[in-house]
């Protein structure tokens, strides 16, 4: 069963191990997460747990968000209760800022349970998913690692250009660029998963996870950490 947690990227630093080797690490404040819902094969058609991380101030949370994590009194709820309809279990916690489902992580987890970084204590390697830093509208050299055109040999104003996009014969004689031709455009600010990142340390006392190397997204960004299936 894949283990997973939600967290926040704290930043990068460097730590030494006993042998004196220095590791560049990203510090992730992983958990504590509340289990908000459990998806089951019978009811939902798949297995997953819905986790919530970081409290949201109640004044910013909509009533629906508050109702998602705790039982609210309303005319409708009273009516349903009177009719004998059982309301689903609630986590009874503060509204959450960051809510995501982790597929296939059910073993014995119940709604309302709090999970901490200790869950990953035995895990060697993780996948980290986050929204990457947005670079805006970007040229092909940065976005697709194109080489650009000549600095000399008569090239003018096209040093960072992509060159040709196709002629009469490309795309089966269609006379237009192939589908999926790499061109300038929006780069970053998309969901990125970096796979198989080694776990350097799990600090259960402070709820911190140290992983080797970089992680997508800005400092302070929300991340999803899952046990990897790619060794």
């Amino acid at each position: 069963m894949a283990k997973g947690l939600l967290g926040r990227k704290v930043g990068m630093t460097q730590v030494f191990d006993e042998s004196g080797r220095a590791y560049p690490v990203t510090v992730i404040e992983a958990g504590p997460c509340h289990v908000l819902q459990v998806r089951t094969q019978d009811r939902d058609g798949y297995e997953a747990v819905q986790l919530g991380f970081a409290d949201k101030p109640r004044r910013l949370a909509r009533r629906s968000e508050r109702g998602h994590v705790a039982t609210l009194e309303s005319k409708r709820s009273k009516k349903l209760k009177a009719a004998g309809v059982e309301s689903p279990a609630k986590a009874n916690c503060e509204p959450k800022r960051f809510i995501r489902e982790i597929r296939g992580m059910v073993d014995g987890l119940e709604v309302g349970q709090e999970i901490t970084v200790g869950l990953l204590a035995e895990v060697k390697s993780v996948d980290v998913t986050a929204t990457s830093k947005g670079s805006g509208f970007t040229g092909v050299m940065k976005r697709w690692n194109f080489g650009g055109l000549c600095a000399a040999h008569g090239a003018k104003k096209v040093h960072r250009s992509l060159g040709g996009t196709g002629g009469k014969a490309t795309d089966r004689g269609g006379g237009r660029p192939k589908k999926g031709k790499k061109m300038p455009g929006q780069y970053g600010n998309e969901r990125v998963t970096t796979r198989n990142i080694k776990v350097v340390r799990v600090d259960e006392e402070n709820g911190l996870l140290l992983v080797h190397g970089a992680v997508p997204g800005p400092t302070g960004g929300m991340v999803i950490v899952r046990e990897t299936n790619k060794y």
Binding site: V10, G11, T13, Q14, V15, F16, V25, V27, E29, D203, N206, L208, L210, T219, G220
Partner: peptide, 14 residues
């Protein structure tokens, strides 16, 4: 907050 947590992590390696 971030800086405090980073300092905490570094503490172990100082």
């Amino acid at each position: 907050m971030s800086q405090k947590l980073l300092a905490l992590v570094e503490q172990s390696s100082l």
